[in-house]
Simulated scan of single mutants.
Amino acid sequence: MRSRTTISPELREWILATTRAGHGVAEVLRLMKEHGYDPRQSRSIVAEVLKLPLATLLASTAGGAPQGLRTQHPEAPEVRIDGHAIGVSLSVEAPALRVLENILSTQECEELIALARPRLQRALTVDSEGRQQMDRRRTSEGMFFTLNEVPLVGRIEQRLAALLRVPASHGEGLQILHYLPGQAYEPHFDWFDPEQPGYGAITAVGGQRIASVVMYLNTPARGGGTAFPELGLTVTTRRGSAVYFAYEGGDPSSLHAGLPVLDGEKWIATKWLREQPYKRPKKA
């Protein structure tokens, strides 16, 4: 089960009294930080006390209301996209999370692996300035397709756009990752922290990330699931299925990890969606 932060009556009353006195959310968070509270925990506490959606609070402290689209969450038992039946086998409401079956065919999985294999390099993450960097937490190899790079990629992008009601132009390039035994990706968030110094640069190319779709291209012999520690949930890696989760730009319960592959290998295709049309950053 998801753990919840305990809020003392004194802290709750202080937050309410401070906001009643005319101080904004940003000022409350600043004061809490000065008194030793972790900023991420503070945002969750203030959101709960003031009964604000966390995404709204994050947007207000980042300089304005959120601009752009939000995804539509697929509903059970299945959604049909151009005759393609996608099953919804698990639904969680906070964060909005769905396990999707048959999102890719066996042939599509095999073709993506074949196209990606010659282009694999050590997988990178995005640093606080929006640059690609080597990260010890991610030990896989990977590559990116550009939007609509080949017909197969374009077809998958259009399927996701229809499923989630967000235009394909709001998606970052499809990333393929390859994990060998022992390789993993430690717990992390896909959304960008507004308190990081490079937040403006990262979001200038499409706004905040709002949702992720992790599609499984094969079934490892053992291990390799996608874990959500705050939910006590692990999604099994099975070829053709996917896990979709939305976080409105800042839900802490969307913390997730790629568990170590114990036997065999793992191939996944990841799609990150933005609140605005995505423009690929120019290389320095």
Results as ranks from 00 to 15, higher is better:
116 A>Y: 08
226 T>E: 02
170 H>L: 04
110 E>N: 15
231 L>A: 02
234 T>L: 02
102 N>I: 04
199 Y>Q: 09
7 I>A: 03
153 V>M: 08
115 L>D: 06
236 T>W: 00
134 M>H: 11
132 Q>P: 11
82 D>P: 04
82 D>I: 04
228 F>N: 00
19 T>F: 00
236 T>P: 00
145 F>S: 09
192 F>G: 02
127 D>Y: 07
229 P>D: 05
266 K>A: 01
77 P>A: 11
97 L>M: 11
203 T>D: 10
270 T>L: 04
112 L>W: 04
124 L>C: 08
200 G>F: 04
168 A>M: 07
110 E>D: 15
54 L>H: 11
248 E>S: 14
261 V>I: 10
102 N>E: 15
217 L>R: 07
248 E>C: 08
225 G>K: 01
254 S>P: 05
187 P>E: 01
15 I>K: 06
79 V>K: 12
151 P>K: 05
186 E>T: 13
274 R>W: 07
179 Y>P: 02
202 I>M: 13
172 E>C: 04
175 Q>G: 00
238 R>K: 13
179 Y>R: 01
35 H>V: 10
82 D>W: 08
109 C>H: 10
111 E>F: 06
22 G>Y: 06
92 V>F: 05
178 H>G: 01
184 A>T: 10
272 W>D: 00
36 G>R: 03
76 A>R: 12
28 V>S: 04
148 N>T: 10
153 V>L: 07
219 T>W: 01
109 C>F: 09
277 P>I: 08
41 Q>T: 13
159 R>Y: 03
53 P>N: 07
246 A>E: 15
41 Q>D: 14
150 V>Q: 14
229 P>M: 05
27 E>R: 15
122 R>A: 14
110 E>C: 10
277 P>K: 08
274 R>T: 01
83 G>W: 12
209 R>P: 08
276 Q>A: 12
235 V>Q: 03
129 E>S: 15
253 S>R: 14
182 G>K: 03
124 L>R: 14
245 F>D: 01
113 I>W: 00
263 D>K: 13
227 A>S: 13
93 E>Q: 13
54 L>V: 15
17 A>G: 09
16 L>K: 13
229 P>S: 08
118 P>V: 12
20 R>S: 12
169 S>Y: 05
2 R>L: 10
116 A>S: 15
161 A>F: 05
226 T>L: 00
112 L>A: 03
101 E>G: 10
158 Q>G: 09
130 G>V: 11
218 N>P: 00
202 I>C: 07
254 S>A: 14
139 T>I: 02
56 T>A: 15
277 P>A: 09
86 I>D: 04
157 E>F: 04
235 V>D: 00
141 E>R: 09
164 L>M: 02
252 P>Q: 03
41 Q>Y: 07
262 L>N: 05
172 E>D: 01
115 L>R: 11
10 E>K: 12
253 S>C: 07
76 A>M: 12
